[in-house]
């Protein structure tokens, strides 16, 4: 299950009537959307939507029946345990693409960013960017990890020769295992016009 699916399922499970519908499903052999809606004083469409969604996640199963009228579905529990499982390794696979390091970077001229030194004076603890003008302006403050702070401390000045991420990593003595988080902050600061990317 990915985050989109989990968000959808979580959204339905968080409905106020979700527990009552499942209680009905535990009590009845099977139940139709009309029966559930009338029992819980819900709109039929609401109950139908909920039951269909749970069916799509294979929590319920449905069977089409027709009793001298138009065919309709009866729903029953397919499993008695509901789990919401996200495999972060699969879903959020961190890709350190070698292409990500092929560009060179330096601080952008007039970035207006304010870097705050950590107490030991060897790395930055945060970077603040002012967005907008005058009173309407808003400060965006990003707290940095120690390796990110070290990396940015060694970022070339706006008029200095730009360097690659790997060169700055070496210069700042940041372990290569921190590269994903470094690339993350570099990408963010490029978007915020604090870092200039030169290909």
């Amino acid at each position: 299950m990915d985050f989109i699916e989990a968000r959808k399922l979580g959204n339905y499970l968080s409905k106020g009537y979700a527990e009552q519908i499942f209680r009905l499903l535990m009590t009845y052999q099977d139940i139709s959307a009309t029966e559930a809606a009338s029992r819980l004083n819900l709109h039929v469409q609401t109950a139908q939507e909920f039951l269909e969604t749970m069916t799509s996640y294979e929590i319920l199963s449905k069977e089409e029946v027709s009793e001298s009228k138009r065919p309709y579905f009866r729903y029953k529990l397919a499993k008695r345990k509901i789990s919401l499982e996200i495999d972060l390794d699969k879903v959020l696979e961190v890709k350190v693409n070698t292409d990500d390091s092929k560009f060179v970077i330096r601080e952008k001229k007039n970035s207006g960013a304010k870097f705050t030194l950590a107490r030991n004076r060897k790395h930055f603890s945060s970077v603040s960017i002012w967005k907008g003008d005058g009173r309407g302006g808003k400060e965006r403050k990003i707290n940095l990890t120690e390796s990110q702070g070290l990396f940015l401390f060694n970022l070339p000045f706006p008029d200095a020769l730009p360097l690659s991420v790997d060169e700055i990593l070496t210069r700042s003595e940041v372990d290569i295992t921190h590269k994903p988080e470094i690339l993350d902050i570099v990408k963010e600061l490029i978007e915020l016009s604090v870092i200039e990317k030169i290909i």
């Binding site: 601080e107 001229k109 007039n110 970035s111 304010k114 870097f115 030194l117 004076r121 401390f153 060694n154 970022l155 000045f157 706006p158 008029d159 700042s172």
Partner: peptide
């Protein structure tokens, strides 16, 4: 001379 090169950041 190099305009707009100032930054409020210490240089290691």
């Amino acid at each position: 001379v190099d305009p707009e090169s100032f930054t409020e950041r210490p240089k290691p």
